[in-house]
Structure formats: structure tokens, C-alpha cells
Amino acid sequence: MHDAKYIVPGLVAFLVLITLPLWYNAAMGRSAVGPTLQYPEGESQCVLPKDEMKGEHMQILDDWRDEAVRDGERYYVHPDGTTREKSLTNTCLGCHGDRAQFCIKCHDYAGVKPYCWDCHIEPERD
């Protein structure tokens, strides 16, 4: 091999960079398993089925906020017939009261920082 003094360090640097997650995670000692969420007690049904909520909650919130704020459509009729207010603070946080245990956990895990909390307030819990 020629020019090994340039090529070998180059290759090694590339390999280290590309495999950085391996070393980083090993150093952090994290496992693959994601956060376990604390679901509200006594509630069986969210606005949509759980799996759909996982993917779509931000979209629902975005739609709700436009519908509630702009169109004055403040209420949502659930397929089960119950009516819920389109309100992050009142409806969502009403059940998922502990933001740290619910929202933040996943958002941190996924590296997502929504700006909801710049304005909306988490109700204080006992």
C-alpha cells in the first residue's frame, strides 16, 4: 500500500465518524428500549387509538388549534359519541397531566422540541 501515512489515518477517521453512535451509546450505557410512558389511570380511550396518536398527535393539535382559534369549532365529537374540547391545556393535559412523564420523555428521546410550551401551561399537579 502506498501513501499509507495519509490514507490509513483518513480511513480510520472515516470509520470512527461513521461508527460514532456505537461508541457514544456504549459510553452512555443506554439500551435500545425507548421510554415507557405513564398513561392516565382510569382513562381507556384517547382522542384516537393509541398507535394513531403516536404518529398524528402533532397534526391533530395543529388542526385543533386552527379550528378552535380561527373557526370557533371548539368541540370535537369522538367516535364513541363523547364530546371533547379542542384544548391542549384542558383536554390533553387534563388526562396527561404530568408533562415530564408523558410529553417530554418521548420528545427528548426523539430529539424533538415543540414550541407548544412557550405559551401553553401545564396544570399544576398535587
Binding site: N25, A32, G34, P35
Partner: peptide, 18 residues
């Protein structure tokens, strides 16, 4: 939308060999 936490679990599984 897909479940992003699930995706990350899959990805983390790969890089932590679990």
C-alpha cells in the same frame, strides 16, 4: 406519520447490538 419512538428503538437496537 410513523411511530418515531419505534423507529428510534429500531435504530438504537442496531447500534447497541440488541
Amino acid at each position: 406519520k410513523t411511530d418515531i419512538v419505534g423507529v428510534k428503538e429500531l435504530a438504537m437496537g442496531i447500534v447497541t447490538f440488541s
